[in-house]
Design a protein around this nucleic acid. Structure first.
Lengths: 143, 143
DNA sequence: ATTACTGCAAAGCATTTGCAGACTG
DNA sequence: CAGTCTGCAAATGCTTTGCAGTAAT
């Protein structure tokens, strides 16, 4: 698992644990919970990184604009992903909580009409929810 | 505080506590947390409804399609609102967590492109985030 | 060497669960 | 009256906090 180094934020002390969290997020195919990150670190055969440390590291990265924190509908654990600057949205399965990346974004052509017009927009979050293929009852997959 | 009765779901036993939760949601100007609902009940001078009861009642109403549960970005408590069937989205202030209702919805004209095309869409959730007027530093409100 | 970071334990807090008594239909 | 619902207490599980030893610069 490699970390491309170049996105390391300035003035942040580099430790094994922090580099590890960043590398895991860089290689993640989907947003992860803090505990997922711990689990992946262990699966890699490395020494454990404690949850409290992971939470502290994530908060630091969020503050530096490197990581995004999200709460997905109907799932109370927060998930974290690298802020890739490019836009990303997901479809969420209401049954298994799987995330599927969307390939387009409606906000590209949308101007939100806010009542008082005085809200300073920083960004948006969009989520499609429904039932994924694996959870949908079909002739192959009767439930 | 009145409950318009007519939206009471069939086959659901009517109790003081359930009617109370529904009435509070009907009269709410914004989505509420379960604990908000408890607090409003007490403010109305009524006997307390316990959080565990409120959670159980909310879950029942969600199951009946009467209530929607949402997790707002950067706020880990779930909020609940009446499912008014008309579309509703909010702008969220990252500073004070205030919610401001949006007056239009981009999804009216948007068809999400899903990778495999096999996802059965049930709905969507959109959230604009940024800084509200009250939290924005201005000449009147230096921070 | 100094300062900040991490392991670890314990606390915090929203939410869930269990159970006996109370209430609805 | 039977079965369900609620008050209450205790448990659960994610997340935060405190502290002392460890590691980075």
């Amino acid at each position: 698992m490699e970390n491309s180094q170049n996105l390391w934020p300035q003035g942040v002390k580099k430790t094994k644990q922090r580099a590890s969290v960043l590398a895991i997020l860089e290689n993640a195919e989907k947003p992860l919970t803090a505990l997922d990150i711990c689990a992946r670190r262990e699966k890699d055969g490395d020494t454990a990184v404690w949850p409290s440390t992971v939470y502290r590291v994530l908060e630091l990265f969020i503050h530096k604009g490197l990581v995004l924190k999200t709460n997905v509908r109907n799932n109370d654990m927060a998930v974290y992903e690298l802020n890739r600057l490019q836009h990303k949205h997901y479809a969420v399965c209401m049954n298994c909580h799987k995330l599927i990346a969307l390939e387009n974004c409606p906000m590209d052509t949308f101007i939100p009409q806010l009542p008082d017009g005085e809200f300073q927009v920083q960004g948006h979050y969009l989520e499609i929810f429904g039932i994924c293929q694996d959870c949908r009852p079909t002739e192959n997959n009767p439930q």
